[in-house]
């Protein structure tokens, strides 16, 4: 009986198959010669089967969709002064865009060429106008890891470029200039980066001239 009590604390994990081989062997050796414990293990196995019938409640879709954005927003609010206003809206913007895009799949090729052109342009712009020293000129840059704040700023800057790209795709590929204007307005309001502000302003003035808006 004393042996039963000692070994019985392993039965819970045993029925789940979560014991180490050594402990599993001890349990199996014991229940092979102890009828009471064998019945107890059987009964626990039945309980486990019942527990496994319980369906896991689903995770709300709104949680899955907005989680990363909400976390970054909170981090920014805590770590970067006045950054709470910088809110990535990529998911919503892209959802709208792809909805349009799927209706007009013939624009795939044009979209791809614009993306490539923009990518190259942004890369050249970054290399040419970046105020930070290049890695070759500053070997320490390879070693010093970026701070949390710098990482966040990079994140939001990358987010802004993606939004600008989206505005241009909306204008040139989806042909929706009013929607493109909306995206640009939001970018202007949300983004404090000087280079981005001037790029947005240039696009907006082109659109205003063309459409008289």
């Amino acid at each position: 009986m004393r042996e039963c009590n000692k070994i019985s604390i392993l039965y819970g994990f045993y029925v789940y198959g979560d014991l180490k081989t050594e402990e599993k062997n001890i349990v199996e050796e014991h229940i092979s010669r102890c009828e009471n414990c064998a019945l107890e293990v059987d009964s626990l196995r039945g309980t486990l089967q019942l527990l496994q019938l319980e369906p896991e409640p689903s995770i709300p879709q709104r949680f899955m969709d907005n989680f990363e954005t909400n976390v970054y927003r909170r981090i920014a609010a805590e770590m970067i002064p006045n950054a709470a206003a910088i809110q990535p809206t990529r998911r919503r913007i892209f959802a709208d865009f792809w909805e349009r895009f799927l209706i007009r799949p013939s624009f795939l090729l044009r979209a791809a060429s614009i993306v490539v052109t923009l990518g190259v342009g942004i890369l050249i712009g970054t290399l040419e106008f970046s105020p930070t020293p290049k890695i070759a000129e500053n070997p320490q840059a390879n070693i010093i890891s970026t701070s949390s704040v710098e990482r966040l700023e990079q994140h939001f800057q990358a987010e802004s470029y993606r939004q600008l790209e989206n505005a241009l795709l909306t204008r040139y590929v989806a042909g929706d200039e009013l929607r493109a204007m909306e995206i640009l307005n939001r970018l202007r309001d949300e983004n404090p980066d000087q280079q981005m502000t001037s790029m947005v302003a240039r696009e907006q003035s082109e659109l205003r001239l063309k459409n008289g808006i």
Partner: peptide, 16 residues
Amino acid sequence: VKVHHHRAMKKLKNIL
């Protein structure tokens, strides 16, 4: 952990 788990399982077995 083993003790609490076993007691939990035993209690659930009786309740269910």
